[in-house]
């Protein structure tokens, strides 16, 4: 008798998990860095190897850090979206990831440069500190350099409107009060 109930009981447990699963987004890989400061780093800038860039250069009301590379097809797809954002005055910093300096500069010359400046991370060492899975990824940081949001994959106008704009409005509404 008991044996005949087992399949139904197992199914109830499974259905429960499926129910919870419906309300979770499987693409969300929560970054442990959200709410934490940007990792400290020093890299040369992409366009001028003699100049350095550090996390201190990101100072602005808010800024985007975009991980990109010329070998990355999806980066080409989001390039126009980034150029549009830059034209609206959004400060975007690039983290050029495991790339060739000449072809990266060439790309920005040909397709346009949305970045305030790009850091050149040839070995990918700094990207590891950022917890980068692959390119493209985009981080949103606030005035204190705290990471507020992370996007894995291609930036689109819709994602910008739905994920980034509300966060940025929140940041603007609560100006630095926790520190003063």
């Amino acid at each position: 008798m008991l044996r005949a109930i087992i399949p139904a009981a197992l199914f109830i447990v499974l259905a429960g998990f499926l129910w919870i699963g419906l309300y979770k987004d499987p693409s969300l890989v929560p970054s442990p860095l959200i709410g934490k400061p940007v990792p400290e780093f020093t890299l040369s800038t992409l366009k001028d190897p003699t100049k350095n860039i550090t996390q201190a250069d990101f100072a602005a009301d808010y800024a985007l850090i975009n991980v990109w590379a010329t070998w990355c097809v999806a980066c080409k797809q989001e390039h126009q979206a980034l150029l549009n954002l830059a034209a609206q005055g959004v400060p975007i910093f690039g983290l050029n990831y495991k790339d060739d300096r000449q072809s990266a500069i060439q790309w920005l010359l040909e397709d346009g440069d949305p970045y305030v400046m790009s850091a050149f991370d040839e070995s990918g060492r700094v990207a590891i500190d950022f917890g980068v899975y692959g390119a493209p990824e985009t981080f949103l940081i606030d005035r204190q350099g705290i990471i507020q949001h992370k996007l894995i994959g291609v930036m689109t106008p819709v994602i910008w409107q739905n994920q980034f704009v509300p966060k940025i409005n929140q940041l603007a509404a609560a100006p630095t009060q926790s520190y003063e």
Binding site: A4, I5, P7, A8, F11, I12, A15, L18, W19, L22, Y23
Partner: peptide
């Protein structure tokens, strides 16, 4: 999510129902 909820509900009726019937009759 309406689609997911619908299929899950349907799954619960069909699978849950038939396994209950099985437990009762087999």
């Amino acid at each position: 999510p309406a689609r997911g909820v619908y299929i899950l509900a349907f799954l619960a009726v069909v699978v849950g129902g038939s396994l209950t019937l099985y437990a009762w009759r087999s």
